[in-house]
Each structure stands twice: as structure tokens, then as C-alpha cells.
């Protein structure tokens, strides 16, 4: 069964949340999910661009009151 790992990158400046996501994806299995919380607006572009390049799936992204939540699935 797929597992989900949470990465709380709130407060990190660009490119901290993206680097935290990359580091987390290295530690999970294909099919697992990583949830990233970020307060950096640049993460919208950074994370989407990297996922497209690296071939992983952005399952959902959500703008919450004071941060953005990304849910990513490792595909390869």
C-alpha cells in the first residue's frame, strides 16, 4: 500500500521547499506520495517545473489560508 510522507517547508525561502521535496522523494518508494507545505509563492512554479522535468505527478495543489499544500506521487 502506498505511503504518504509529509514535508513541512513553511518558512523556507526559495528554493528550500523544492529542495526539501527532492530530498524526500529520494527516500520513498515508487507509488508513494509526498505532501509538501510551503509559504513560498515561488514554489508553485518551481515545484511544477521540476515535477514535469523529473517525471513525477502533481496529484493536487491547494492554496490554504497561509500556505500552499502540494501532493506529489513518485512515478519512477
Amino acid at each position: 500500500m502506498a505511503e504518504r510522507k509529509e514535508v513541512d517547508a513553511r518558512g523556507m525561502a526559495c528554493p528550500g521547499p523544492l529542495i526539501a521535496l527532492i530530498s524526500a522523494l529520494k527516500t520513498v518508494e515508487v507509488g508513494d506520495e509526498v505532501e509538501v507545505l510551503s509559504t513560498d509563492r515561488g514554489s508553485n512554479k518551481d515545484i511544477a517545473t521540476w515535477l514535469n522535468k523529473a517525471g513525477h505527478q502533481l496529484v493536487e495543489s491547494e492554496q490554504l489560508a497561509d500556505h500552499i499544500r502540494f501532493l506529489v506521487r513518485k512515478l519512477r
Binding site: 526559495c14 528554493p15 523544492l18 529542495i19 527532492i22 518551481d46 517545473t49 521540476w50
Partner: peptide, 10 residues
């Protein structure tokens, strides 16, 4: 470099 530019500091 790991991210989309040549250094973390833009």
C-alpha cells in the same frame, strides 16, 4: 545544479 537555475540565490 539541482534546481532550475545555476544557484540557490537568484
Amino acid at each position: 545544479y539541482p534546481i532550475g537555475r545555476l544557484h540557490g540565490l537568484e
